[in-house]
C-alpha cells in the first residue's frame, strides 16, 4: 500500500493562484482594523465605566430628591410660630411632625416642648 502511495502526488498548485491570493489578502490587510485589540478594549472599558458612572449618578440624584427634607408649604404658619418665640427650624419640625396649632399659644408651646423632650 505504501509503495502505491509513494508513486502518487497531489496535482500541483496553479501558478496564477499566487498573484490572486496575495492581491486579495493584501487588500484585506490594508482594510483591516486600524486599532489594536488592546486599544479597542481600553475604549470599550472607558465607555462602559462612563455609562456606569452616569447611571449611578442618576440613581443617587433621584434618591436625593425622594429623601430631601420636605419644605413646609405653609410659610404663614411658620412665621406665626416664629412670632411665638419658636426658632424657624423648630417650627418646621413641629409642623412636619403633625402638631396642630389650635389657637392657644400656651397649649402649642407646651405641646411643642413635650414633643421635643420625647
Amino acid at each position: 500500500m505504501e509503495k502505491r502511495l509513494e508513486n502518487i502526488r497531489i496535482k500541483p498548485i496553479s501558478p496564477e493562484l499566487k498573484e490572486k491570493i496575495l492581491s486579495a489578502a493584501k487588500a484585506k490587510w490594508n482594510d483591516s482594523e486600524q486599532f489594536s485589540p488592546s486599544f479597542r478594549l481600553a475604549i470599550k472599558i472607558f465607555f462602559t465605566a462612563a455609562a456606569s458612572f452616569i447611571a449611578v449618578a442618576l440613581i443617587f440624584d433621584s434618591l436625593k430628591q425622594e429623601t430631601a427634607t420636605p419644605v413646609n408649604k405653609n410659610q404663614s404658619q411658620i412665621e406665626e410660630l416664629v412670632s411665638l418665640g419658636i426658632t424657624k427650624e423648630m417650627a418646621v419640625v413641629a409642623l412636619n411632625s403633625g402638631i396642630k396649632h389650635n389657637g392657644s399659644k400656651e397649649t402649642y408651646r407646651n405641646l411643642l416642648k413635650s414633643e421635643s423632650e420625647l
Binding site: 491570493i21 486579495a24 484585506k28
Partner: peptide, 10 residues
C-alpha cells in the same frame, strides 16, 4: 487557501 490568506490578513 485563498480564504485562509484573507483570514491571516484579518
Amino acid at each position: 487557501l485563498q480564504e485562509l490568506f484573507i483570514k491571516i490578513a484579518e
